[in-house]
Nucleic acid binder design. Structure first.
Lengths: 137, 137
DNA sequence: GTTTATGCAAATTCTTTGCAATACT
DNA sequence: AGTATTGCAAAGAATTTGCATAAAC
């Protein structure tokens, strides 16, 4: 598992306290999705909300993070294993737990492709599974 | 294809102009998702925004509509074929076209279930495919 | 010393809530 | 008539933009 500072250097991004903090949070959380609000709370007001939003955007543009589809219209971001190395994939399987409300990126599972009706052309796919996770049994 | 007024009677909902209009729009649009903003524009200010929101909520509670997952955090609602009769299903395959921005409910396709890691329990699933649709070839 | 990121203020969009007036059956 | 729905005003959450200051390289 890479450290935040190293990832920033790799991606040619300036090493700022906010970026190190945000990226560190994602690394610590593993494959769990984190919302901007959570980051704001975790940082205890150390960084401006706007700065966190901009940091998230920077990371998305750099393919470090991707947006996580939530059924309840709540936006989260996640660092996926696949995104860390070079074969960045846009085929994500996300699991949303209705009990603890965490959304995780199930990297182990690959999306089974379906046959689309004539004329449809797939670019990417997101599979969201809603249910209960191991911790909430 | 049922008419709006009949569906309302079936579901024991009062027949009001806003409900008839909104439901009519969904029937006309077929399996395409519609956002609250679109409904507001289409009605040309005839109904209050709040009323449209409440109407959408009423229809969701009555299993007439379901929320459509959009990758770009845009909320749409759709009337699915499966939802019209009694075997209301929550396993939806949605297709979002990056060109015309429409989201449609692909009723013909059923979700292929995946094997979840130990401890995970599925309640429902949403599959969103992003790409180009037949009209935007 | 340049370039880029940050913080603050403020604006926008989406959505919800309370309450009195109105429409539905 | 009695109950449910509507419209208005207003509040709340999430997100974005502009600009001057500050920090990174």
């Amino acid at each position: 598992m890479k450290k935040a500072a190293d990832i920033l250097i790799d991606k040619d991004l300036r090493k700022t306290p906010c970026r190190v903090f945000v990226l560190g949070e994602f690394i610590r959380k593993g494959n769990k999705g984190i919302s901007e609000t959570e980051l704001e709370n975790r940082s205890k007001g150390k960084f401006d909300r706007v700065t966190i939003y901009r940091t998230l955007k920077t990371f998305m543009d750099a393919d470090i993070l991707h947006k996580v589809i939530d059924d309840d219209n709540l936006v989260k971001y996640a660092l996926c294993k696949e995104c860390e190395d070079d074969h960045h994939s846009h085929e994500h399987v996300h699991f949303k737990c209705t009990s603890c409300n965490t959304t995780s990126c199930l990297d182990e599972i690959s999306i089974v492709s379906v046959d689309l009706p004539k004329g449809y052309k797939k670019i990417e796919a997101n599979y969201l599974i809603i249910g209960t996770c191991p911790e909430c049994k």
